[in-house]
């Protein structure tokens, strides 16, 4: 067993700076509010409980099962966390999981972390909450409500997070919407089934061992209804936007160009100083060669410095 990266974690380099920064801001706002709400609910217990449960979701993601032909599925956990902890604690826990994955295991980038938090912790939790609470309302306290609600929440959280990822890539100009959206969507409709089954397995175990834990998930009052509504809106918007975007990829392309002034090949400055490539050098190929020579010199000097330093270290410590 080893740490296996999930396909939803966007690495750095794939998102435009504007998209990354906007999603950072949205995610931080969501996290800030969630932290406040959890503090109201749990008080002094917040830090230890959130820390340990984040570790548990992380460890739970390592419990893989063989699907077929050497591939294996494993838990992502947003739905499970939402059902067991309620939306606010689930957001905090998933933010911790996604952040540690990026910081320690480079699963997902650091600049892209805002987007990954948005997709898995905010969208994933809101959509799970919407799906689960809706179905539970119809089912009352019956077993099928737990199973169908758990499955739907898990499946939807994965699929919707994948669609959000695809749209973010399209808006960044990294992947055309008419390819990315159906591809990501279809793959995650399958992955979502695994997520659904594994979530059901976890819920059945909890129901058998500690049924009282299943009662806590509903968030109270207006904020709870707000999460439900946000989940509904996100699910609806993505359900409408995704086919639209893949049918008319030019729309997103236009979007990408509008904000793409930062990562377009030709910057506005290019027009101002047309023939000025590298200080004093006009030919781009030549500029690259000069950069290569400079870079090689730098690396060579560093390597030399290290070698000298090592020799000094080994002579000063005999044996």
């Amino acid at each position: 067993m080893h740490y296996s990266p999930a396909p939803l974690h966007i690495p750095d380099g794939f998102l435009s700076v504007v998209v990354a920064v906007i999603l950072w801001i949205v995610s931080l706002a969501g996290l800030g509010y969630a932290l406040k709400r959890v503090n109201q609910d749990l008080g002094e217990r917040q830090a230890p409980l959130m820390g340990v449960l984040a570790a548990a979701i992380f460890a739970g993601q390592m419990l893989n099962f063989t699907v077929a032909g050497g591939t294996s599925g494993h838990l992502l956990g947003a739905a499970l966390a939402t059902i067991l902890l309620g939306p606010w604690a689930a957001i905090v826990v998933m933010v911790c999981v996604v952040s540690v994955q990026a910081l320690i295991f480079q699963d997902g980038g650091l600049l892209a972390l805002g987007a990954n938090i948005f997709n898995m912790a905010i969208v994933g939790v809101a959509v799970s909450y919407f799906a689960y609470q809706t179905i539970r309302k119809f089912a009352g306290n019956q077993r099928w409500g737990l199973l169908v609600g758990g499955f739907a929440a898990a499946w939807l959280s994965v699929v919707v997070a994948a669609l959000a990822t695809a749209l973010e890539l399209a808006v960044s100009g990294t992947s055309p919407a008419n390819v990315a959206v159906p591809a990501m969507g279809l793959i995650h409709m399958l992955i979502g089934v695994g997520e659904g089954l594994i979530t059901i397995g976890a819920l059945l175990f909890v129901r058998a061992a500690r049924p009282e834990l299943l009662g806590r998930s509903a968030a109270s009052g207006r904020a709870g209804r707000a999460v439900w509504a946000i989940g509904l809106v996100i699910a609806l918007v993505l359900a409408v936007l995704s086919p639209l975007a893949s049918a008319h990829p030019d729309g997103l392309e236009w979007f990408a160009e509008q904000q793409g002034f930062i990562d377009r090949a030709q910057s506005p400055l290019y027009d101002l100083i047309p023939d000025y490539a590298f200080p004093g050098i006009s030919d781009p190929a030549l500029a690259t060669i000069v950069a290569g020579v400079l870079g090689t010199l730098l690396v060579f000097m560093v390597a030399l410095g290290i070698a000298v330093n090592r020799r000094r270290r080994s002579t000063s410590t005999p044996g």
Partner: peptide, 12 residues
């Protein structure tokens, strides 16, 4: 998948 889920539930 459900067995793996049961283990995850146990862990939680």
């Amino acid at each position: 998948a459900r067995v793996a889920g049961g283990m995850a539930g146990n862990l939680l």
